[in-house]
C-alpha cells in the first residue's frame, strides 16, 4: 500500500459517500444515471467474489463489502425509494453496447480462463466504461448539479491516482498488471473532458454547464 493507492481508495470512498448524501439529503436522484449505477453494482459484485475465497487483509475485505453494499443501496434508493425523482427520460444510453463487447473481451483477454478470473477481468473492463451512461446524461441535459460534479470528480480521480500507484509499484516492486493498467488509462481518459470543465467552472464557483 503506497500513498497513491490509499489516496485513490479514499477518493473512491468519498465519491460514493457524496452520491449517497446527495440522494439522501435532497430526497432526489435527479441527474444521476441509474444505468451507470447498475453497471457499477455489476462491477463490484463480479470483482469482489474473491471475498469468499481469499482473505487479503481486514482493510481489503471491509472496502469490498462497503463497495458492494453501497452500490446495492444506491440502486435501491434510485429504483425504489426515490423512484419518482429518477430522470429516466434522459438516461437512455444503451448498456448492451458496453456489456456485450466487455463480456467478449473478458472471455478473450484475461490472465487465466477460470470463472473467478474471467469475472474479475470482465469487471475491470466494465468499470473502465461504466461511467459513459452518466457522462452521456450530463451531455444530454447540458448541465449537472454541483454536488453531482463533485461526485464525478472524485470517481474519476480515483482511477487516475491508481495509475500513479501502478507507476510506483512498477518501479519499486517490479509489479504490474497490464489488464488493470490499460483499462485504468482508458477509464481516466474518458473523464478528461469532464475534468477540464470541472476545473475551469466548478472550482471557480460556477455551475457545470456545457458550452452550447
Amino acid at each position: 500500500m503506497n500513498v497513491f493507492r490509499l489516496a485513490g481508495d479514499l477518493s473512491h470512498l468519498l465519491a460514493i459517500i457524496i452520491l449517497l448524501l446527495k440522494i439522501w439529503k435532497t430526497r432526489s436522484c435527479a441527474g444521476i444515471s441509474g444505468r451507470s449505477q447498475i453497471l457499477f453494482a455489476l462491477v463490484y459484485t463480479t470483482r469482489y467474489l474473491d471475498l469468499f475465497t481469499n482473505f487479503i487483509s481486514l482493510y481489503n475485505s471491509v472496502m469490498k463489502v462497503f463497495f458492494i453494499s453501497t452500490s446495492c443501496a444506491t440502486i435501491y434508493l434510485m429504483y425504489v425509494k426515490f423512484k419518482a425523482t429518477y430522470d429516466h427520460n434522459h438516461d437512455t444510453f444503451r448498456i448492451g453496447f458496453l456489456l456485450i463487447p466487455v463480456t467478449i473481451l473478458g472471455l478473450l483477454i484475461n490472465h487465466d480462463f477460470t470463472p473467478l478470473e474471467v469475472l474479475w477481468t470482465f469487471s475491470i473492463y466494465l468499470e473502465s466504461v461504466a461511467i459513459l451512461p452518466q457522462l452521456f446524461m450530463v451531455s444530454k441535459t447540458g448541465d449537472a448539479e454541483t454536488i453531482t460534479s463533485h461526485y464525478l470528480f472524485c470517481l474519476g480521480l480515483y482511477r487516475a491516482l491508481y495509475i500513479f500507484n501502478w507507476i510506483y509499484r512498477y518501479y519499486f516492486e517490479g509489479f504490474y498488471d497490464l489488464i488493470a493498467i490499460v483499462a485504468g488509462v482508458v477509464q481516466t481518459v474518458l473523464y478528461c473532458d469532464f475534468f477540464y470543465l470541472y476545473v475551469t467552472r466548478v472550482i471557480k464557483g460556477k455551475a457545470l454547464k456545457l458550452p452550447a
Partner: peptide
C-alpha cells in the same frame, strides 16, 4: 497453476 490470481487492489 493457481486457481485464481491474487488481486490485492480494489
Amino acid at each position: 497453476n493457481r486457481y485464481t490470481i491474487l488481486h490485492d487492489e480494489l
